[in-house]
Amino acid sequence: MSKVKTYKVIGLRSTLLSLILFLFFILLSKQFEPYNQSQLANIAMLLIAVLSITLLTGASGQISLGQGAIMAVGGYSSALLVTRLGLSMWLAFILAIFISALFGLFLGLAAARLSGPYLAGTTLVMALAIPSIAVRFETFFSGDVGLSVDYGMPPEWLTNLVGEISIEEWSLYVVLPFTAVALFAVLNLLNTRTGRTWRAVRDNEVAAALAGINIGRTKVIVFVCASGLAGLAGALYGFRGLVAPSVYPTDLSLTLLTAAVIGGLRSIGGAIFGTFVIVFLPDLIEKVTKNFAIPETVGIYLPALTIGLLLLLTVILNPRGAAGALEHIRHKKKH
């Protein structure tokens, strides 16, 4: 198969899978009440951030405990562009990708020299430091109070077209195209030469260097791409109502990593599954425990406890996550 033909097949498959995801979310939202529609919108935006971990950690082997902080960069960029410069929300989302990618470039330049726990520590410090910056330069970033932004109301042309829709459904419609495009981009990146290069660096840096791959440059490029994605997710996440330090706490970064690990760090399908788990599992636990006389003091800790336990079990028993387990079952059936 010629190179061009290969790319066409990859492109077609990526388009198809992105479209399937798009339609799946739309169809699922039609079965849901507004609250679960808003949860679906949360999944759609957090999925973009989890995909950034799939790229960074899954594909290139670089650990980040600070994706939430890059989300904050995207959130503040877009919110400032809208509130201070009066740009349209849509343009602000796109510009947030570039601003976050630029941030990722600087971060990547430093990160390329680090690995393992040193890189994890550096990115964790970033997650802790970003909220402080917003408070330190209070006049510009509005401190703890943050910047009040939202998706607005559904436009008239849309309600004329599809009838009355809830604010929650509208938020899903705003987010979903970006999620589909992000998925398309990640699928393409990982299935082409670029993705193979990243994986080569992840698996054996020395062998990759001997094969002519520039390790430092590759790592920086991954950081740029992952930061662009995380920044977009952060912009969409902030427009739920507020861009403020408490919207992007340190544990947001850890939650994203948890989703990626539970689903499978190296799998896009796993990223989708993991994101569904971290968003819907607390609701599911609440629904189940409602039927039992569990003391409030225990009940309020159950979701975090369950997800933490799930993460531990995944790491100990099934490090490749849900996607890895699925792959293992398929493999067993074949042989």
Partner: peptide, 26 residues
């Protein structure tokens, strides 16, 4: 990185998680 059948299967699995969370429409 396998991105074909597992992706579709995990999408379906995700749907199951989501469906479980659907609340009854009052």
């Amino acid at each position: 990185m396998n991105l074909r059948k597992p992706l579709i299967l995990t999408v379906v699995a995700s749907a199951l998680v989501g469906s479980l969370a659907i609340s009854s429409i009052s």
